[in-house]
Computed example of a mutant assay.
Amino acid sequence: MQRLQISGVDLAVEIQGQGQPLIFVHGFPLDHTMWEAQIAEFSRDYHVLAPDLRGFGTSGTGSGIATMERFADDLAELADCLGLSARGIVLCGLSMGGYIAFQFLRKYAALLRGLVLCNTRATADADEVRENRYRLATKVRQEGPEVVVHQMLPKLVSDETRRERPECLDRLETMMRGASWEGIAAAALGMAERPDSSALLATIPCPALVIAGEFDALSPSSEMQAMANAIPGVRFEVIPGAGHMTPMEKPREFNAILRSFLQSLEPRST
């Protein structure tokens, strides 16, 4: 892990490999280790970056609400700091990482060579979901990360994963407990306030891949199919047997899909 000062926050970033830049953006309230199988696979052929977003993992926590735009700005500054901006970035975000990817697209589309959206949605929160995020932020500040473990952990994986790969749940719980209460609350408020990105879908200027889990309870595959339908030339894939955490639950299948997509991209000259 390397540590870099990005926008006044000490960010921890896993950086491995050489070649075209590939940035993995984790979900809420997790850290970069959710991408462990992808880092190991793709760092053989690509310049892989997997940051702990501010407030998560071993990164520092900023002040105020952690908006999706703030996270996107961090990623753009990170790319610039490492001299990657001119090389064309493939950005791969899951769940909250997808929300961040949309804000990156909104502000930094010229930096993108490819976009991978996993288990996420382009729409803003419905009123009920938004209110739940506000309540979660308040409770986490009062009681700590235990609240989010109980609320979210049962929803993250499929029954098949729960049965056959209990270690996946153990790893997710460890990540959640490792997040700071300030980071969890700040990101929950940031997600609640994120704008609707549906209008961006038709304007995505780079090749896009959308990956869903067959049994995802949080971002149903039917909703992700509808999102994908609005993206020109998109590749859409559903991973059988997976829930919300497709890269962890079905790493071999996920990696095969992602590798095929990456190989289809024209590398940007450096």
Rank of each mutant, 00 (worst) to 15 (best):
G64Y: 12
G64C: 13
G64N: 14
G64H: 13
I65H: 08
I65D: 09
I65Q: 10
I65S: 09
I65F: 07
I65G: 06
I65R: 13
A66T: 15
A66L: 14
A66E: 11
A66F: 11
T67F: 14
T67P: 15
T67V: 15
T67R: 12
M68I: 14
M68V: 15
E69R: 03
E69N: 01
E69S: 05
R70T: 14
R70V: 12
F71V: 05
F71M: 08
A72V: 12
A72T: 09
A72H: 05
A72R: 03
D74F: 01
L75Y: 00
A76L: 07
L78Q: 01
L78I: 04
L78C: 06
L78D: 02
L78T: 03
A79I: 01
D80R: 07
D80L: 03
D80N: 12
D80K: 06
C81G: 00
C81F: 01
C81Q: 05
L82T: 08
L82C: 08
L82A: 08
L82S: 07
L82K: 05
G83I: 08
S85A: 15
S85I: 10
A86E: 13
A86L: 02
A86W: 00
R87Q: 15
R87I: 07
G88C: 11
G88M: 04
I89D: 07
V90E: 10
V90R: 04
L91Q: 06
C92P: 14
C92S: 15
C92V: 15
G93D: 01
G93S: 02
G93W: 00
L94M: 14
S95C: 13
S95V: 07
M96D: 02
M96R: 03
G97Y: 01
G98C: 10
G98K: 05
Y99M: 12
